Amino acid sequence: MRKVISDFFKDHPSIEVIGTARNGKEAIKKIGELKPDVVTMDVEMPELSGIETLKWIMENTPVPVVMLSSFTENGAQQTMLAMEYGAVDFVTKPGGTISLDLHKVKDELIHKVELALKIPIEKLRKHGSNINQSVKTLQHDSTIHLKEKDMITETKTTPKFQIKKWNKASDKIVLIGTSTGGPRALQHVITKLPESISAPILIVQHMPPGFTKSLAERLNHISKIRVKEAEHGEVIESGTAYIAPGGFHIKMKKNGHHYEIVLDDKEPPRSGHRPSVDVMFESVGQYAELDKIAVIMTGMGNDGSKGLMALKESGNVIAIAESAETCIVFGMPKAAIETKLVDEVVNVDKIAETIMKYLV
Rank of each mutant, 00 (worst) to 15 (best):
V279L: 09
L175E: 08
I98M: 08
N316W: 04
A185M: 08
Y358W: 15
Q78Y: 06
H188P: 00
K350I: 01
V345C: 11
I351A: 00
T92M: 13
K340Y: 14
K254M: 10
E26P: 03
K160S: 06
Y358L: 02
E289H: 09
E195Q: 13
K55L: 12
I222A: 00
E267Y: 02
S6A: 15
D265C: 09
H127F: 05
H273Y: 12
T339C: 08
I351T: 07
K93S: 10
V38R: 07
K123A: 09
S99L: 11
I98E: 08
L109D: 03
K3S: 09
Q77F: 09
H221Q: 13
I190H: 10
I57A: 04
A352Y: 11
V227T: 06
K149P: 05
A169F: 00
K35D: 03
N167S: 04
P64F: 09
A288V: 15
P36N: 05
L263W: 11
P120F: 10
L81A: 11
V63K: 05
V43D: 04
T354P: 00
I318Y: 05
V174L: 05
K192A: 11
D107F: 02
H111M: 14
A352C: 05
A87M: 10
L290F: 13
V65I: 12
I355F: 07
H111R: 15
K228L: 13
E217P: 03
S271Q: 12
H127G: 01
A241F: 04
M332P: 00
L48S: 06
D303L: 10
K213E: 10
L81D: 06
I121K: 11
H221R: 14
K29D: 12
K3T: 09
V63L: 01
S129I: 14
T326C: 00
I28N: 01
Q78C: 05
R184P: 01
D89H: 08
H111T: 14
K106P: 05
E229Q: 14
N60C: 05
E47Y: 14
E122V: 07
V346L: 09
L109A: 05
T72N: 01
G50Q: 07
D101K: 14
V277S: 04
S179K: 03
A169T: 13
L341R: 12
A324T: 02
M83Q: 12
S323E: 03
I31E: 00
I173T: 13
S170V: 11
N255H: 13
S214F: 01
P13H: 07
G50N: 04
I163V: 08
P183T: 07
S323N: 05
W56E: 13
T158N: 07
E108S: 10
A288K: 15
E16H: 12
V17K: 01
H273L: 06
T79Q: 06
E33F: 07
L115Q: 14
S99N: 11
Q78S: 08
K55M: 12
G246D: 06
E237I: 03
E33L: 14
A310T: 15
V342G: 08
V360G: 02
F9V: 07
I201P: 04
H221L: 14
N23E: 01
I190D: 02
D349I: 13
K55P: 03
L219G: 01
I201M: 00
V113R: 13
I225H: 06
T157Q: 09
V43N: 10
A288T: 15
L186G: 02
E114V: 12
L68A: 00
D7Q: 13
G24Y: 06
K334E: 11
